[in-house]
Design a protein around this nucleic acid. Sequence first.
DNA 1: ATGGTTAATATGTCTAGACATAATGCAAGT
DNA 2: ACTTGCATTATGTCTAGACATATTAACCAT
Lengths: 228, 228
Amino acid sequence: MTLGWEEIRAEVLRRIRAREWPPGALIPGEEALAEEFGVARATVNRAMRDLAEAGVIERKKRAGTRVAELPVRRARLEIPVIRLDVLGRGLTYDFKLLADRVERAPIPVTARLGLPEGTAMRYLETLHLAGGRPFVLETRWLNPAILPAPPPDFAAVSANEWLVTHVSLVSGDIAFTAEPATPREAEVMGMAPGTPLLVAERTTHGTTGPVTLVRLAHAPGHRVQMTF
Amino acid sequence: MTLGWEEIRAEVLRRIRAREWPPGALIPGEEALAEEFGVARATVNRAMRDLAEAGVIERKKRAGTRVAELPVRRARLEIPVIRLDVLGRGLTYDFKLLADRVERAPIPVTARLGLPEGTAMRYLETLHLAGGRPFVLETRWLNPAILPAPPPDFAAVSANEWLVTHVSLVSGDIAFTAEPATPREAEVMGMAPGTPLLVAERTTHGTTGPVTLVRLAHAPGHRVQMTF
DNA sequence: ATGGTTAATATGTCTAGACATAATGCAAGT
DNA sequence: ACTTGCATTATGTCTAGACATATTAACCAT
């Protein structure tokens, strides 16, 4: 029976958990481990690289590999298109375009996207419905520079979905906060103002510059679930 | 100048974004790409594996590699120990153990951890302080079976931190919700009841069974930030 | 002591070739 | 028509060896 990289990883992990190699300790080099397990160094490397990605060990050239002092847990969040999110919950999906206009974006918006003050941007307000009931209110500022010549009809395809399939997003960030429902949100989504809402704020950048800043106000009770 | 796997990845990504290989399309096999770029197949494999992990392409043995129809964006959340989170914000850290007792856990708690109804569990209530002000109220149900013979003193080291360094956590999940502050939370953290709070609920399982269920109620204004 | 240079070393990556594994689609048998 | 089995094929993994790169520690010169 020959060992694979996953078995190497399992054994290394076992030794770390058993405190044979305590936090902060220096682990034998790849060459030594390769010899011990009777595999090629590349196989050990594969296993160690995986553990490093998981945050269990820290590796530095020349300095060697050591067990992480305080292993940082990493959770992965998969952000689906809202339509698929809703359908995945077994509910019917629909959306309404509540607003679509071009105007000068407020300073906080341009600032966060790194655009000059007073840039004219497309403002979109979309209410996503799940099973006929409000699911998410999306308010979006979109950089018109990234849109094609005949701009897409966001009443037919939601901006959320159009962007995923037509713009190559490079990087971005999401922040989750709990906020009281604004009067506008309360009115549109049919709830009392001040109701706690889970709000996700995303900025995304593409190859040709800033793309969009979007605020997703989720209906009460919404859970964002992650596994690790 | 010789190509590395990151350059292969960049070029493949460029072709996908440029729609030379549109969503759903079948990409040439590793062998073909290796020949085209003049590198070994393992190098192409490294690049493709990375793109698959990022959700840009989907790979299946025999069936080949195709461009993802709706690229699922994946964001990574790093969950540090609360103490380091606070120190990382340039604030002093402190915590107070408000409650520490053993009692029968409520049914929802045992159910979520997969323990028998009425199991006696350790209940801990910890207030984490940042710069002397309430930061997070942690309410935790801990499976006493995983604790060592002389149980640790959670007044000296927070349970949060003790668990990370002493229990090998295998899997778990986190859910974020927005909830109104309970009377207890409002009292302890000094705010009006009903104030929207960002709540994280985590369950974790170790090698020897369920470990803990914890609820972290964050002070108003708290942001959970992720990058992708 | 102090600062800069150099050699040693552990990890990172690559090559060329091999076998393993899984999924597909065709062919044969019921 | 339907199922079963098998050959095919693309990805997954491994080996043994090589060179690249970052970083440390030792050394030397000021």
